[in-house]
Simulated assay, not measured.
Amino acid sequence: MSLLEKLVRKRRIWEDILGFENCEFYIKRWPQLDGMQFEDVLISFPDANPCGVKVASYGGKIVLNLEDSYILQEGDEVLVIAEDDDTYSPAALPMVKEASSKNIARPARKSQKILLCGWRRDIDDMIVVLDAFLAPGSELWMFNDVLEKEREKKLTDGGLDINRLVNIS
């Protein structure tokens, strides 16, 4: 690919990202959102994707990827990505119907045989996690280059107490 072709290709990529076709960035003040947490603002726009806030108390600084707990203040403006500036507006928060989970039966877990291939320095931690998630009677088989006696020493040195494993052998 020639230098000219590369430059043309890069230009097309930047035009796709920053151009005025499809969706663009818009920033607008929505007084009805004052006092709302940003996590609720995120789901308030069915036809746009909020991605930041122009924070009035920071001198109009735009902050992207806000904490969910940020509360919109008077004067704040919401930055969104939308198809056009007249195609979106905030709607009422969606209602979530609570369901009772009292009668949900968990399926019985079955023991499993796990083959762990290779060796990592934190393999002892992986074994502890497997022990916590697998059903009683499960087996852990190890396939690696570490000799058995050396393997036991490395696991013990890493903090693994094989006698404390409950669900796997």
Rank of each mutant, 00 (worst) to 15 (best):
52 G>D: 10
77 E>W: 05
142 M>R: 07
164 R>A: 15
18 L>P: 04
56 A>H: 13
127 I>P: 07
11 R>H: 10
158 G>R: 02
5 E>G: 05
70 Y>I: 08
95 M>P: 00
57 S>A: 14
96 V>T: 13
29 R>T: 12
46 P>V: 03
40 D>V: 01
113 K>Q: 09
162 I>N: 03
151 R>T: 10
27 I>K: 02
93 L>F: 10
18 L>H: 15
166 V>Y: 12
42 L>C: 12
3 L>T: 10
36 M>N: 03
147 L>E: 15
98 E>P: 00
106 R>Y: 09
32 Q>K: 11
114 I>L: 14
158 G>P: 06
107 P>G: 04
152 E>T: 01
70 Y>L: 14
157 D>Y: 03
105 A>W: 01
63 V>E: 13
72 L>S: 00
71 I>D: 02
122 D>M: 01
165 L>W: 05
99 A>Q: 04
79 L>D: 02
90 P>M: 06
120 R>G: 08
125 D>F: 07
67 E>H: 08
132 A>S: 11
15 E>W: 06
38 F>L: 02
92 A>L: 09
59 G>N: 08
93 L>A: 13
34 D>I: 15
30 W>A: 01
87 T>P: 03
97 K>D: 05
100 S>V: 02
64 L>N: 04
13 I>K: 12
10 K>A: 12
76 D>K: 09
153 K>G: 00
161 D>L: 12
82 A>N: 05
152 E>I: 04
102 K>I: 12
12 R>I: 11
144 N>C: 14
73 Q>V: 00
15 E>Q: 11
20 F>L: 13
137 G>R: 02
136 P>I: 10
